[in-house]
Design a protein around this nucleic acid. Structure first.
Lengths: 342, 342
DNA sequence: GGTGGCAATTTGAACGATCAAACCGGTGAT
DNA sequence: ATCACCGGTTTGATCGTTCAAATTGCCACC
């Protein structure tokens, strides 16, 4: 267990210390059933005494695998710390499967970076966090046989099929609408991305279907804007200036929701005029008083499925589903803290 | 450039294709000056034709280095997406130095996880993002000769010295105070962590010194709370209920700042009663109307220095500074968007 | 008593790169 | 004539592990 040099104890030293061959040491760790129990005990003692850990590079070389999952680090954007939370969940899920998460930056040519990492054996596959409609990376990967899994169902990809894990965000927004209906609202607006983002369209559809199901008006109650608070507030203000303004908003993301609530302003008692429900359940929900309800994606489950699908590809299993669809959950919040002093 | 199998092209195949030996191919890539230019051109053609990339595992094994920097993924907390942004900066800085960032989860025994990663050669060193006062990991690493660099100056560590990069947050808060003074405020409160976090104490000291320098009162204008919006709002409300309430807050983090502003409430025109300055310049600053000013840590620079210090240790250079202190920058914001409709 | 089978263990050969040393024909100094 | 030395290139060994095959000792079977 001593020793200053971090690297240095090799399988041969352990073998010598235990009076067996290298292969036997390896077997103790990888196939214990092949080793007599007293021998195994002796080897295990030597391993503990010397503080032996199998050298990863040697394993990788021999096994032609890195046990690393690659993920391109994207510049943080928006108010939601979704990437943050997903990374945490992914790291834990990967650890359970014996993998690590390797972050990398795409300095100039993104595709070349992916190719380098795969061909050099630095990673075994990729997780794509930022899949866009018609994303050119997917067919490019597929053509090269590069293993990958998407967080977010691929759209606009012709008849080609890829592995994915997604969250049924239409369902999530519908739940938000139902919550607002239950709170007594009849004019519920939607605010989200302009058409074309795929998941954005889906969230809007979730609002529309749920509203119709409850016999609510949807005609002039849908707004779109860029995903930043300022733009969202303007768009919400436009909806609010109509003849029959909405009293509540279901939103495509927390950013839109914050914008809507700012546009709605507060009454004389300091409470907001508008009830809004966001999407992503980011830290932003806590930044308002009362705190905001929001639709939470099950990131832990997403990460576990992502890892399972990727590891399945790497092992060559063909009994994997093409994709996994998960249900989000509505988190309702009521601020119980002190009212603002006025 | 063709080839379906991602791994497979080895240096020997390139050598055969170019009609030279393995070592010459290696030299073309690592020591081009040793190779005749026409030979080099021939080799480079073969490399391009075959799509050869040196196998990372083989390099790692031979060179006894992984060129990976380890970082423990911590569960996201607070409203600031600081980790997110730091990870992005770190990944880019590491890439420039030829390193990757490897994320890992500490499932049960954290120290054992670190030891595994180092002894197995999975990573060459660590970046510590979450250093606490008297953090036991630092002497533990030092005793074992494990290379690491702290983001945040180590405190409470006796006379032992470690490598670090830090941001002068006292200076940052002082700048915030000066900004508020310039805006005409005379009663400027501080809200931050309870004593004992090190960096929190420092930020508070920055406020106190700057306030005294301008002849302002500090006596009953310092508040503390846990770092969440609810608790921060309560603490701010207490300060505001005094006989001579503050008109502005300088805060230890954006979370405190948001809490303070919520506690301050808004006037009849919908504008907030309190002017607050946060710390970290997280996405939360954009969530209010008008947007909030905040002190921004130079994360890109921090990351570059962290990588430089770590790589220096790995190379064994002894001309490295013990630590690097950087200056944050005050980002002032004035909301130009639409006013809330009332 | 030879044969086959079995469990436990060892041996030799990879994996793909790089280091260190050797090698080459040729030139100039001693 | 001997030697060191040149740039350019090759050879052999090595990094630490694991795969596949070979080798033991031991027992049972006909």
């Amino acid at each position: 267990m001593s020793g200053r040099d971090p690297i240095g104890v090799t399988i041969s030293e352990v073998a010598a210390a235990a009076g067996v061959s290298r292969q036997t040491v390896s077997n103790v760790l990888k196939a214990p059933e092949r080793v007599a129990s007293d021998t195994a005990a002796r080897v295990r003692r030597a391993i503990d005494d010397l503080g032996y850990r199998p050298n990863r590079a040697a394993q990788n070389l021999r096994q032609r695998a890195s046990r690393c999952i690659g993920l391109k680090m994207v510049p943080p954007s928006g108010v939601s710390n979704l990437l943050d939370r997903f990374l945490h969940a992914l790291t834990e899920a990967a650890a359970v499967a014996g993998y690590h998460v390797l972050l990398f930056a795409a300095v100039d040519d993104e595709l070349a970076t992916y190719e380098d990492l795969i061909r050099s054996g630095t990673v075994d596959g990729f997780v794509l966090f930022d899949v866009e409609v018609g994303d050119p990376r997917l067919p490019w990967f597929a053509r090269r046989g590069i293993p990958f899994v998407c967080f977010g169902r691929p759209r606009g990809q012709g008849r080609e099929r890829f592995r994915w894990v997604d969250v049924d965000s239409a369902y999530g927004v519908a739940r938000a609408v139902e919550h607002l209906v239950g709170r007594g609202h009849r004019r519920i607006a939607y605010l989200g991305w302009p058409e074309g983002t795929g998941f954005g369209d889906e969230r809007r559809a979730g609002w529309e279907q749920a509203a119709r199901r409850h016999g609510l008006d949807v005609g002039d109650l849908a707004g779109t804007s860029a995903e930043d608070v300022t733009a969202a507030a303007s768009a919400a203000a436009r909806l609010l200036s109509g003849p029959e303004p909405p009293t509540a908003f279901a939103c495509g993301s927390d950013t839109f929701a914050v914008g809507a609530r700012l546009a709605g302003g507060t009454g004389a008692d300091g409470r907001p005029n508008l009830e809004v429900v966001g999407f992503d359940d980011s830290a932003a929900t806590m930044l308002m008083s009362p705190a905001m309800s929001s639709v939470r994606q099950p990131l832990g489950e997403v990460a576990r499925h992502v890892v399972a699908l990727l590891v399945g590809q790497l092992r060559g299993s063909d009994d994997q589903p093409e994709g996994v669809m998960l249900r989000p959950e509505l988190v309702t919040r009521e601020w119980r803290g002190p009212e603002p002093v006025l």
